[in-house]
Design a protein around this nucleic acid. Structure first.
Length: 204
DNA sequence: GTCGGGATCCTCT
DNA sequence: GAGGATCCCGACA
């Protein structure tokens, strides 16, 4: 049942199985809850447990960037799974997605919130003086706390500076409508936002 | 070349 | 709860 939890004495192993990402976004989203996200830079490491995500389905999902076909911006979504798709939103915030599958299907999981438990000083230097629970609450804040920018777009999660360590969620998983995608009609109401119930690090 | 909108966040009221 | 910040990207002429 365990997917390699982080609670044990030995440190969690880096996820290096490409096939793990080669699944529908909803499956990957569920398994990302409780996993750790780590970004290593010359300035240091920032790591944290993922507590909130949103799944974006293939091109039929009108809320997904892949809905209008491949462009220079979203090309990473159409590439192999297990890569990072980073884009700038509102000219201010970098949002990070995990590209998944299955196969060539351009699905992805938006990382919305994490509980930072490593590199707190570095994360605070990037975010300013905010409570620990808010360091990476919301996709824009998460991107800033982890030091994500467009130079990381297309990064291989199996070999690059950003990687994942699987773990189990510390509470029940809840589902709800995605945020900020009202333009997508009925797709906006689908319960593709997943979070760990009761976790104080969730964005809303 | 120009224009308009966006998977957000923070501050102020 | 409302509105501004801020700029890349895509659509269109």
């Amino acid at each position: 049942m365990s997917r390699g939890g982080v609670a044990g004495a030995s440190p969690a192993a880096r996820l290096t199985d490409r096939a793990w990402f080669d699944r529908p976004a909803l499956e990957v989203a569920r398994d990302l809850l409780g996993a750790r996200l780590v970004h290593e830079t010359p300035a240091g490491r920032v790591g944290g447990r993922i507590v909130e995500v949103e799944a974006y389905r293939g091109p039929e999902d009108l809320a997904a960037h892949s809905a209008r076909g491949m462009t220079a911006r979203n090309a990473v979504m159409f590439g192999p799974p297990g890569h990072l798709y980073v884009y700038l939103i509102y000219g201010l915030h970098h949002c990070a997605n995990v590209v998944c599958g299955p196969g060539d299907k351009p699905e992805a999981v938006l990382l919305r919130a994490a509980a930072v438990d490593e590199g707190l000083e570095l994360a605070r230097a990037r975010r300013g003086d905010v409570p620990q629970r808010r360091l990476a609450a919301g996709p824009g804040n998460l991107g800033r706390a982890f030091g994500f920018d467009r130079s990381l777009n297309g990064t291989d999660l199996l070999a690059g500076p950003v990687h994942l360590e699987l773990g189990d969620p510390a509470g029940p998983i809840r589902h709800g409508a995605r945020i900020g995608v009202d333009y997508a009609g009925a797709w906006a109401a689908r319960p593709y936002r997943l979070w760990i119930d009761g976790d104080p690090h969730v964005s809303r």
